[in-house]
Design a protein around this nucleic acid. Structure first.
Lengths: 206, 206
DNA sequence: ATCTTAACGCAACCCTATTTGCATGAGCGC
DNA sequence: GCGCTCATGCAAATAGGGTTGCGTTAAGAT
């Protein structure tokens, strides 16, 4: 009754992280990525992952417990592995680089799957809000750096998350985005319009 | 091989729509709403719905086939039952009324569940893009009316969907929205800033 | 009122995800 | 290299979602 399972999911930081354990982890992660890419972002079932990775299903169940936790683990690993876009000091340039990559990621087969895993996890108390924050917070920090570098005070990192990730996510999810139209630029310009509007309002009065 | 199941989901428009059939439908819908509200928007399992509604599980499976299709059916029914906000001619007023209701809906227990059902359905080819469009298109039309009434040409209905529904959805999903802060007003003002920005840009020089 | 048959309830059945006990293999500290 | 465990594989057992055949109930038409 007091084993690791009660405290949540170990997933990482195990007592014996190297060698075989590490290889198992990579094999499973790899299979998850492939399966999600070919199933349109749908979280794969554990037996499927087991078959493709060559890792016994019982092992996967013991280490990750549930599908959602497994997918989220892969998502966290991927995002943490991605190199951040640099903050040049020009907000439009920075946001554009970021947004383009985001849109491209969403458009990739199964690219939405990991965001969906995140949203699913955020409404599941068992997986934990902290694991969600683990993904969101670095994004907020990254945006703050961009804002600082360009000296923008009219926008908060939260604004950027909502106004860029929000539309990009919904548009990709519902298939509302035409590939020929440069959505990234349009989104970034919208955000800059918002900043300009607030700047004017602050200067005008109020 | 040629029964109704192959063509998709009947769900409505059955040969015998009244009386018992209608009561069954209402009982099941009611149970789904309650269960989603108490499970934080998680789609309930069919046996659960059966137990709570008093309708036999086999009946539910026969009429709706899958969890996702059932939840989506409830979502469509709810949205269609909601009275639309009137278009007064003042874009800010109209958008504000719409957005406030939206944010409030999302904040309600399980309020996100139906949007999630929609997004889930949109990536599931079996449920059908037409049923998704059945929900999205009236929203687009509604926005178009608001734009027409106010004479706004800088924004498209799609812009409004992306810039209002997108941030509202993501913010609610990830729990990024503080209740005391008037998110609806902030979102609407952002959209108006975008419109103003485009207006200026068009006037200044293509 | 009667008839036809769609819609339903019931219960047995199937399928597959998930769990669990036990034996084996392999990190990692010594 | 040796030994202590953790991590894994294997296979049997479990559980619960989903299906199906059949008898019953009750719309809706005449």
């Amino acid at each position: 009754m007091s084993d690791a399972h009660d405290a949540g999911f170990q997933v990482t930081g195990t007592v014996r992280p190297g060698g075989r354990t590490s290889r198992t982890r990579e094999a499973v992660h790899h299979a998850v990525r492939e399966l999600m890419a070919m199933h349109n972002g749908e979280p794969p079932e554990i037996p499927e992952v087991a078959a493709r990775s060559g890792i016994n299903a019982a092992t996967i169940y013991r280490r990750w417990r549930t599908r959602d936790a497994l997918v989220l683990d892969v998502a966290v690993a991927d995002v943490n592995a991605a190199s951040p876009v640099p903050a040049t000091g020009d907000l439009r340039t920075d946001l554009l680089a970021y947004t383009r990559r985001l849109v491209e990621t969403f458009a990739r087969p199964g690219g939405l799957g990991f965001v969906n895993a995140l949203t699913t996890a955020s409404r599941d108390a068992r997986i934990g809000t902290d694991r969600v924050r683990e993904l969101v917070q670095p994004r907020l920090d990254r945006f703050q750096e961009m804002l600082d570098a360009s000296g923008t005070t009219e926008l908060s990192p939260l604004d950027l998350v909502l106004l860029i990730l929000g539309p990009a996510h919904l548009g990709a999810t519902l298939g509302l985005i035409e590939p020929d139209h440069d959505v990234a630029a349009r989104l970034v310009d919208s955000v800059l319009d918002v900043a300009a509007g607030r700047r004017l309002r602050a200067a005008g009065g109020g």
